[in-house]
Design a protein around this nucleic acid. Sequence first.
DNA 1: TTGAAAGCGTTACCAA
DNA 2: TTGGTAACGCTTTCAA
Lengths: 351, 351
Amino acid sequence: MNIGEIAKRAGVSRSTVSYALSGKRTVSDNTRQKIQRVIDELGYRPNASARALANGRTSTIGLVFPPAGDHYTGMQLDFIGSVVEAAATHDYDVLLSPSGVDSDRSFQRLLGERRVDGAILMEIRLEDDRVDHLAALGFPCVAIGRTAHPENGWWVGLDHTALAAACVRHLADLGHRTIAFVNRPETLLRTGYESARRGLEGFTKAAAERGLTVRTYCCGDDAASGQACLEQILHDEPATTALVTLNEAALGGIYRGLAQADRHVPRDFSVTGVVAGRWAETVTPQLTAADVPAEEMGRRAVELLMERLDRPDATPRHHLLVPPISLRASTGPAGLPGKAEVPASAPFPQS
Amino acid sequence: MNIGEIAKRAGVSRSTVSYALSGKRTVSDNTRQKIQRVIDELGYRPNASARALANGRTSTIGLVFPPAGDHYTGMQLDFIGSVVEAAATHDYDVLLSPSGVDSDRSFQRLLGERRVDGAILMEIRLEDDRVDHLAALGFPCVAIGRTAHPENGWWVGLDHTALAAACVRHLADLGHRTIAFVNRPETLLRTGYESARRGLEGFTKAAAERGLTVRTYCCGDDAASGQACLEQILHDEPATTALVTLNEAALGGIYRGLAQADRHVPRDFSVTGVVAGRWAETVTPQLTAADVPAEEMGRRAVELLMERLDRPDATPRHHLLVPPISLRASTGPAGLPGKAEVPASAPFPQS
DNA sequence: TTGAAAGCGTTACCAA
DNA sequence: TTGGTAACGCTTTCAA
């Protein structure tokens, strides 16, 4: 079943069928109807490969994200979902590529073989060879995340520096003086993963400004690591009364560790961080956090990419988002060291 | 940059380049090296659309799953991840299609336009028009899930009936007499979503066999709904001492509701169900559950599909998995109604 | 061991 | 308003 067959049965030429379908040339009502009847009857749909070959567009975008070492985090997965849905509203399909670096086979296939019209890159590193490569090629892409040199790029990012800093200030305002930072796994930090780096930077700077005592930790992306990390924190500095985390997968473990150490949240210990909203709400008490607007970010990335595909010479655009901290139930005034309880409404003690 | 250019620079014909690349015809070492040099130098990769058009294979598989109403559950997302990674090991890319029914635009594109060589279907309904349609077409596909008539199909499924029943028996063995079932949302149950239907069936049947008192509930896929559902359960029947759930997204809310009702898990109340392992481990106490082996299921589905693509006339194969219940910390012996505590080692009371 | 040429199913240009 | 035809970039058959 191909366009020639349709043309024959409708008694017209192939080009007329093509134009009737695309609308790029006027076709008389009469013939259009004739053609449509045949198409409906035979359930014809033009072959995507042939079309892509002829007009150079695949109507597909690539979504590039690193292979999960062990598993994907909820946030990563939220991005995937939102990108797919946003693309669908533009009648684009999404081709997934589990590629962390430039040299991955899948990445090469996607771009080298022209399987996609454009790409969305996730899990950006501050120095990211995928971004550099694509930029050098002039290949249409939008990053979810921001490299160290984002000036002329297309991206939608989160201001992790500001977000982590806001968390610190929130804790400092509540009177906490000794706090910890629970980051993503060390390999991610070392490879320059953006949120891990910028989050750490924001945390460190804000804590210094407020003169807080801090310790920073890396933590595996799972509950067991979270629990172990918390135990380490209390072991290293029992006076710690609060922490900031970027690691939503560890969150359940952190809470568990706190419970086992008999630190009640938020009475004895405050927890906050940067986490997708729906994950923040699954823990008890619900996490006060800067909610990562994954859905919005995915949607915006797609919109940016569509714009770029429509006008290849458009000037680079981007969105830097700074979602506010959602006050939920996991933070409270710092208790006096040694005292068990402080009424929630009491002015916090200054040491 | 195309094959003709490579041929010209290497001083051979296009067919020779093609054969050098595919290995489908012997090429002298000498010319092969000449060709390879040019290819490396220019970074040439054959165009995927042209190749697909010429040989009828796209080297892409479609992954079909319903659009998230509100968001995706962790399990859905685990499937996506595992399918993508498994496909990558076979050098296949994955095209995502958010399609719940046959008539979705995206589904039509995928199949009608021959964008993919085969498909993997997720979120199967007992009567699923996508499965029927594909089967009628003889289109290579593998379902993750099992319809009401799975005899001649290709699929990898979970025995939800047996799993839910095992949960019930586990609770009954611990002495629980009044238990509840927390299912997925009502719309899913009504539309015949497999795990919701078979899970409910298994629960009901096993409970009847053991003469238990039961109530069944549907519950939204989020923490707030879980909490509300639990309150309803205790309101409807305060004597309830345990529940079985398929709804991992509601789990956090269920725990929260239990805590607020002052029911300690597992001392006063036992919770179990069918949930992906890593989610079971994020809650405290960790959930005793039949762990959904999402990674294995995704991998097996891809393997089955590869097999089917290789041998189009192979006889249908499938895997029905029945993972054991992982004993963790959320279930314990039923307490006597009105009594607060029962030593874990005590024989459970028979009423 | 290699080359020439005919597809694969569209699109879009050039004529009419 | 329409038809004929040359691309698009590859694979594969047929010949040499």
